[in-house]
Nucleic acid binder design. Structure first.
Lengths: 148, 148
DNA sequence: ATTAATGCTATTGCTTTAGTAGTATTTAAT
DNA sequence: ATTAAATACTACTAAAGCAATAGCATTAAT
């Protein structure tokens, strides 16, 4: 039950882009540095976000990435789905043939409920929520240091 | 975000034991057959449940397994924990060193919320709930067949 | 002593994950 | 036009985790 790095990094990338709406676009190099993600690995994160239509870019020398929609319209579930086709904590939710007893199975119903709870949570928060929260955290004073 | 087979099978084993409280104990062979789990793989499932104190047995010729507690006192989270030491959807929740920015990270807080939702759901259902539900499903009439 | 059960540890094949590598393409600036 | 600085794409790889198998040891009723 782990969230993989593509989704985790993907969310962070989206937050960074959301916090820089004003600019024309942010370079991959810049994102890699700020988010401490390997430049090359970021290739794949960006590819996923792009093919899902969450971010856009123009190729060439002066380009960079930006969000395609208002971040209040993008939920974390959207980012999750950019890297995972469908959310299913057990296979029998999406593949009837994965188990003989898909119908009349108390555990299947239970896992389905878990799935629903998870999807609901992921859909309840937008990139804008996270970006706002991150901005707050960044503005809070540093930890107090006492000099003797 | 998959539930692994050990947890899934583990829950089914627990339900089977819960539904057979009256008997002295159920043989591994019987569980394997009823639940369609490889006998050998069941070794590991049972070992996990046993070392967590959820089931007990006496070795020897006539033995079998039974629950150690009333199934109303056993949640699915207990079974989950029998195979996963601690519930953490991202490492930074349990290992401070896994990321530089554990504090002041909006995403960390978000994943922590996801984690909490999961734990809450897993703790909300007991083995008794599932066993009762399974008994109901088993008693419902077969699918109707119409003869012309 | 035999038999039928559980108990334990190691191994294996497979898939996924996380990341690297290399090269091609695009376009602004020169 | 050429170059430089960005993105775009595809393949590869090392390591870890997952699901299951294999083999032998131990226990206790008969």
């Amino acid at each position: 039950m782990k969230i993989n790095t593509k989704v985790r990094y993907g969310v962070r990338v989206m937050i960074e882009l959301a916090l820089n709406k004003q600019k024309e676009g942010i370079y991959q190099k810049e994102i890699a540095k700020n988010q401490d993600i390997s430049f090359k690995y970021l290739d794949q994160i960006i590819a996923g976000l792009k093919s899902s239509g969450l971010i856009s870019t123009v190729a060439g020398k002066k380009s960079g990435y930006r969000l395609t929609r208002d971040p209040v319209e993008i939920t974390v579930l959207d980012v999750y789905n950019a890297f995972n086709p469908e959310f299913a904590v057990v296979d029998c939710l999406t593949d009837e043939n994965s188990c003989r007893k898909t119908t009349k199975c108390a555990t299947r119903d239970f896992w389905e409920g878990l799935n629903t709870a998870l999807v609901k949570y992921l859909r309840s928060t937008t990139i804008n929520d996270l970006a706002k929260r991150q901005a707050e955290l960044d503005q809070e004073p540093q930890e107090l240091i006492f000099y003797i």
